[in-house]
């Protein structure tokens, strides 16, 4: 379903479109809300966060999340595929254990622990986010590939497909909705963790919040929080839409 093909009313009730409009309006229009914040918080000298533009922060935030998620999809997806092949089966238990145990580690603690190893800056954030995002991706890749019915695999092989064809034409498309769900979990967690990553020196949308909290500037906190929240909701709605496409197509 394309935007152009949408009836006006449909467009107005669409969570993704509404969220996207709200997000763009917040990011671009925040400076024009300065008078409003000035009225709400008359005691503040600077009612608007202006050290960095919200556009810049939003793009950096999204870059951090996209890079770490992409790395996690490649590494985690690859590992998930590897341990479901006959030659990698021995490592499956280990990988599943790591994925399950790792997810009990709070993301904020993983982020903090990256600092003693990596120092401050965007790098430890990138590493921590990638590591954490790996876990749900691995877990769901294995579960998704596992869920493909043996009968389907059997008939694919019976039709003369080689291992690679079976993987790319049958297994991955059928497992896609489950894998996507893992990616969604990872990305949503990462949007939040990337905000906290401002405490380890990554410039993200968490920065106004942290600066505002440390300097008792509630206006900064609200500005950062509104945009991060909108970003997370939009991304989640986007995944919802993708899941809809995938399931329609794979008829699960």
């Amino acid at each position: 379903m394309t935007v152009a093909g949408m009836a006006p009313r449909e467009f107005l009730t669409d969570r993704l479109m509404l969220g996207l409009v709200a997000l763009v309006a917040l990011v671009l229009g925040m400076p024009s809300l300065k008078p409003l914040f000035a009225t709400l918080y008359p005691g503040l000298d600077r009612p608007l966060y202006e050290a960095e533009s919200f556009v810049r922060l939003t793009l950096d935030h999204m870059a951090l999340v996209s890079l770490s998620s992409l790395a996690a999809i490649l590494l985690g997806g690859g590992a998930g595929i590897a341990v479901t092949r006959p030659w990698g089966r021995e490592f499956r238990g280990l990988l599943e254990t790591v994925a399950t145990m790792g997810q009990t580690f709070p993301p904020v603690a993983v982020l903090a622990l990256a600092v003693p190893v990596m120092g401050f800056g965007p790098e430890p954030a990138l590493i921590a986010l990638t590591l954490y995002a790996l876990l749900p991706v691995v877990e769901n890749t294995v579960a998704g590939l596992d869920g493909v019915s043996p009968a389907v695999l059997d008939s694919a092989r019976g039709l003369g497909m080689g291992p690679a064809e079976v993987l790319f034409k049958v297994e991955l498309p059928l497992a896609a909705p489950v894998i996507l769900a893992g990616v969604r979990t990872a990305v949503i967690i990462n949007v939040g963790t990337a905000a906290i990553a401002s405490t380890v020196g990554a410039k993200t949308l968490g920065l106004p919040i942290i600066v505002g909290l440390n300097g008792s500037n509630q206006a900064y906190v609200i500005q950062g929080a509104l945009i991060v929240a909108a970003l997370a909701v939009v991304i989640d709605a986007g995944f919802d839409r993708m899941a809809g496409w995938l399931t329609r197509w794979s008829r699960r």
Partner: peptide, 20 residues
Amino acid sequence: NVVQTVPSIALFGLLMAPLA
């Protein structure tokens, strides 16, 4: 579900103003 989606730091921030 939407609450779960909102990053924790943002939810803390958004709760601050009304509670204050």
